[in-house]
Design a protein around this nucleic acid. Structure first.
Lengths: 344, 344
DNA sequence: CTGAAAGCGCTTACAG
DNA sequence: CTGAAAGCGCTTACAG
């Protein structure tokens, strides 16, 4: 039995089922939707006819007329469906939505604001019930009209600006501060910072936390060992190789996943991985198998996703309270790299 | 400006735009769909009215009547949207679909056949134009009726059974054979196998490849160091710790991601990572930072996703040729663990 | 070039 | 308990 052997035929509609069962179309509708007030004999006839025809209801047609007009679909705009952080958020949102019989349309933004607006618009034109956005853009006023028309919005990972909708974010500043304070406990007095583009809200918050920790410990910031704008592993590695050669920082804080990997590669290349303490923001797979293991300030993407989904469904269900920002704590995962004993 | 300040109002329809612009609804439809034969002045009036009302077309309503009835949506059923392999496939499918203005509804199956059927059915009831399935189940006859009704199917990573639809799969057997042959080149004569449940088609194919390589080299298989059914990192670690203690295999082949991680953890725990050669099937992030780096037979999930999407769109566009299986080569990534010099 | 009528597959509102 | 009519927001098919 292969593809060219099958019989092609149109999808049967309720009308076809009704005709075969000898009932009205409305009775088919009742049976399909498990309305209990149908005579058992008619239920039986309708089910038999539906089975014989291979009838499947058309849910998009149903939602068009159904009161409330919900599509039972939500949109999820992520930085990139294939990066581990986005993917973990996605899974948590999917699980929450699945329990409510709602499907998820996901898309990748790649830090492109224009892509964010286009995709949001496309999803709205599909009439998703709500949208969870990990924003690439910095201006979210475009959602105002959509909110007024009934589409729910929740932002995740980064807050919208202005604060037009709920947001669920990591404690970026507090987490970074705690990470750097942890490093300073090794006794070091100069900490290098390698981070992402400061235009990205989370990068900025983490840099603020870095500064908070230095200030609290009475340590001066040395701008010679502060590097922003690192977007890739390669950029981070090159920046770290240069800084390690020229300035010998006593410890290193990295603000993001890919940056951590690049800097760790550089430390290994220089043979410094056991001598220069490092803490990275955001967890890495396999980080505990490295020598030394990489100490990180881990985010909880599953919690972010679950909480964002919960807020979104509250909004979809009519909650019109003022927008709130929910901050999710981060967690220090001690594995060795952040606890090296300084050779003095 | 915050959420409780907005004005709630219904979404305007084409009828509303038509009334405000003083034209027929059909003219609005023409303008919205960029039909060129509308008088410039009317186009202008319609656009102004639409802008004033914040009109957005309802694409699901449009597709209901549109000939062909396409929804410009496809479904993607993955093992787990958050695992790196699935996520990479997802991204490739998304990119291919995006160029064609098609959105992707993704879902996770977690190796549960029942979930596969339920989700497939749900997506069909939404009238997706086609479905790409990384199957959990072993019987795919349920798709026959759906194919007949016009829904396109492509399987990815594992073939459907019976072969009812196109499939895009890795060269599991050939890749495993090449990986184990590579190990045998170190001079070892006993190779342990740690693998997933043999019921999973890919695991079985990789085990066949393992046996092929031993047979080609004239090495006997030692079932004392063959372990199947490993589903998690923990199970793999425990199995490896037990086998390493009792049987001292000279080299190790692991059939899958999580198994590789568990076995590498066990080797590190025993201090054997520089003495027992290992090759894993499927690549790992950070595998090159470990000491030694982990040599793997890498799959190409992006190629799998792209090719599956290409087949699916061909099918959606009317291709009714017999089903074909497309095999994507794997690639040996040499990093050290598979090239250890045996201490004899 | 423009628009009134009919219809996509279903549900609502209503009458029997 | 059942079904004919009207309508969801749009497009098709057609007449002007």
């Amino acid at each position: 039995m292969d593809v060219d052997a099958v019989q092609y035929r149109e999808r049967p509609t309720m009308r076809d089922v009704a005709a075969l069962a000898g009932v009205g179309i409305k009775t088919v509708s009742r049976v399909v939707n498990d309305v209990p007030t149908v005579a058992p004999e008619l239920v039986e006839r309708v089910r038999t006819a539906a089975g014989k025809l291979g009838y499947r209801p058309n849910l998009t047609a149903a939602s068009l007329r159904r009161s409330g007009g919900r599509t039972n679909t939500i949109g999820l705009l992520l930085e990139d469906v294939s990066n581990p952080f986005s993917a973990a958020v996605h899974r948590a949102v999917e699980d929450y939505a699945r329990e409510r019989n709602v499907l998820v349309l996901a898309g990748s933004l790649d830090e492109r604001p224009q892509r964010e607006r286009e995709l949001a618009r496309t999803l709205i034109d599909r009439r998703v019930d709500g949208l969870i956005i990990m924003p690439a853009g910095r201006d979210h006023r475009y959602i105002v009209a959509e909110q007024a028309a009934g589409t729910a919005f929740v932002f995740i990972d980064r807050e919208p600006s202005p604060l037009l909708a709920d947001a669920v974010v990591s404690d970026n500043r507090g987490g970074a501060r705690a990470a750097v304070s942890h490093l300073l406990r090794t006794g070091c007095r100069s900490v290098a910072y390698f981070g992402d583009d400061l235009e990205i809200a989370t990068a900025k918050q983490r840099f603020c936390g870095f500064q908070d920790a230095l200030a609290a410990a009475g340590v001066d910031r040395d701008d010679a060992i502060v590097r922003h704008g690192l977007r890739t592993v390669e950029q981070a590695r090159h920046a770290a190789l240069a800084a390690l050669g020229a300035h010998n920082p006593e410890a290193v804080f990295t603000s993001q996943n890919l940056v951590t990997i690049g800097v760790v590669e550089a430390l290994h290349a220089r043979g410094l991985q056991h001598r220069v303490p490092l803490v990275g923001f955001d967890d890495l797979p396999l980080a505990d198998l490295l020598k030394p293991g990489i100490t990180v300030m881990a985010q909880d993407p599953a919690a972010l996703g679950r909480l964002a989904a919960a807020r979104l469904f509250d909004r979809i269900n009519g909650d019109r309270a003022p927008a709130v920002v929910h901050t999710v704590p981060t967690r220090l995962v001690v594995r060795g790299s952040g606890e090296l004993v300084l050779a003095r």
